[in-house]
Design a protein around this nucleic acid. Structure first.
Lengths: 137, 137
DNA sequence: GTAACTGCAAAATATTTGCATCCTT
DNA sequence: AAGGATGCAAATATTTTGCAGTTAC
């Protein structure tokens, strides 16, 4: 299993306290995190601005990806499987529980192909399913 | 074809200048609109706050729906087909052109079913495809 | 006439930027 | 030591709220 240090080094980032801490939050989280979640858990120790910059860096490097939601918030999630090495493939479905509000990466559920209208070219696809998760069932 | 007035009345909203104007923007738009787009085009005449409130009303009534995007902006789009009458079914795929940044409702492309892990219940699904649209091809 | 809608002002919140200092390598 | 990362302060931008005046029905 990869450690925080491995991941940071692998992406050519210097190892700092805030990056370690934030990465740890992701590794321990069972779902995706909103900026606010991270701030709540890390901002005791770090500046709000550092959270912004760290997340931005992680996204740029491909360590985390952003999940679009309808409710104006961006969620950030670590790809648990393929994405940590080499190129970033965010091809799984995200699930948002309407009860506990947790966002879960369904790493095993692949986004199905869709047939686009003629003259449309696909580069990426994202899919978010809302419903009730296994814990809230 | 439904007129602005028809639509507003159908949803039990009183007909005001700002609602007519904003609805017109949607009817003329070939894609989805960001809050900023609406503000740019309508805010000459209306207060910024009115745009917020009007959009909120439209979403509540089901006249427009929100499209999740990764880049922190909410997009609003009119459902061209089924959604205008009765209940709102936002079951089509959204397409974001990486060239012109336009967001298009692919009303004819239905979101495919996915098989969720056991004990997960689906309520809604959203799908966003990024790529190159027909105009930018 | 009444309820609903709008504009204005202002508060609350969120995000970005510059710069001096500190830390990693 | 050098480059990058952080913290602080402050500028910007975004969204929400209260209230008085106006408008639709």
């Amino acid at each position: 299993m990869k450690t925080k240090l491995d991941i940071l080094k692998q992406y050519g980032l210097s190892v700092t306290d805030s990056r370690k801490k934030i990465l740890e939050l992701f590794l321990n989280a069972d779902g995706a995190l909103a900026h606010a979640d991270i701030e709540k858990n890390a901002a005791k120790n770090f500046d709000r601005v550092t959270v912004y910059r760290t997340l931005q860096t992680f996204v740029e490097k491909g360590i985390v990806h952003q999940i679009p939601t309808t409710d104006n918030s961006i969620l950030y999630a670590l790809c648990k499987q393929n994405c940590q090495q080499g190129h970033h493939h965010d091809d799984h479905v995200h699930f948002i529980c309407s009860n506990c509000d947790k966002t879960i990466c369904l790493d095993d559920v692949t986004i199905p192909q869709v047939k686009l209208p003629i003259n449309f070219t696909k580069q990426q696809a994202a899919m978010v399913v809302t419903g009730v998760c296994e814990d809230c069932k």
